[in-house]
Computed example of a mutant assay.
Amino acid sequence: MSSSRPTTETRAGDDRTTELIRWAAFSCVLVPVVLLWYGTSLAGTAGTAVGLAAVTAVCRLLLRRSERCAARPPGGAHPPRAPHRGGRRRTGTGSRRGGRHSGGSTPVG
């Protein structure tokens, strides 16, 4: 019987990710304040804040997605594929593609 409770390893990874996201959000607030403090224009500071927020949101999305993929059991929802047992072989007209051909292609005549 499998339980739906996360393992300690999963929770530790989740805690680290949450802490990382909190620091990133803190930076999204701190950087514009520092830029304003040092005299950067309001428009430049706003643009920086929006850019940092966008990057933080994308990173958060990717981190959460990688955690979900890592938490999946090996094999996931898709069963493993059967090993490949050779390529398709064409017979008849047009079976050769490129390479050297025996015989010439000039008309006899």
Rank of each mutant, 00 (worst) to 15 (best):
A24R: 09
A24P: 00
P79M: 00
T8R: 06
G13R: 15
A70R: 15
P32K: 05
R60P: 00
M1G: 12
P79V: 06
G51K: 10
Y38N: 13
A46I: 14
T17Q: 03
L30F: 15
T17Y: 02
H84A: 11
P6Q: 06
P80C: 01
V34A: 14
W23S: 07
S41W: 05
S2D: 02
P74M: 08
T8P: 04
R88W: 14
C28F: 00
A12T: 15
L62C: 07
C28P: 04
V108S: 08
A54I: 15
L36E: 13
A53E: 10
G92D: 09
F26K: 08
L20P: 04
R100D: 01
L63E: 06
D14P: 01
T91S: 13
T45C: 14
G86R: 04
G104F: 03
T56I: 01
S27D: 11
L36A: 13
V55L: 14
A49C: 11
E9M: 02
L36Y: 13
H78E: 00
S95A: 15
R65C: 08
A71P: 03
G87V: 12
A70I: 07
G103W: 03
V34L: 13
T17P: 05
R5C: 03
R16M: 12
E19V: 08
R85G: 13
V33K: 11
T40K: 15
R65S: 13
R90C: 11
I21W: 02
G94E: 06
L61C: 08
V50L: 15
I21K: 12
V34P: 06
S3N: 08
G76R: 00
T10W: 03
T40A: 15
R68N: 10
S4V: 02
V55N: 00
L42V: 14
R97I: 06
P80K: 00
S2A: 03
T91V: 10
G47H: 08
S2C: 00
D14V: 09
G39S: 12
R96Y: 01
A57G: 09
P73W: 01
R65Q: 14
V31L: 14
L62Q: 12
S105D: 14
G87L: 14
S2P: 10
A77E: 06
L61R: 12
A43P: 04
G99N: 02
T56Y: 06
R22P: 02
G13W: 05
C69D: 13
R16Y: 05
W23Q: 08
G98S: 04
R16F: 08
T8G: 01
S41P: 09
S3K: 05
V33E: 09
V34R: 11
S66H: 06
W37L: 14
G94P: 05
L52H: 11
W23H: 10
W37N: 07
R5V: 02
G104L: 07
R16D: 07
S4Y: 06
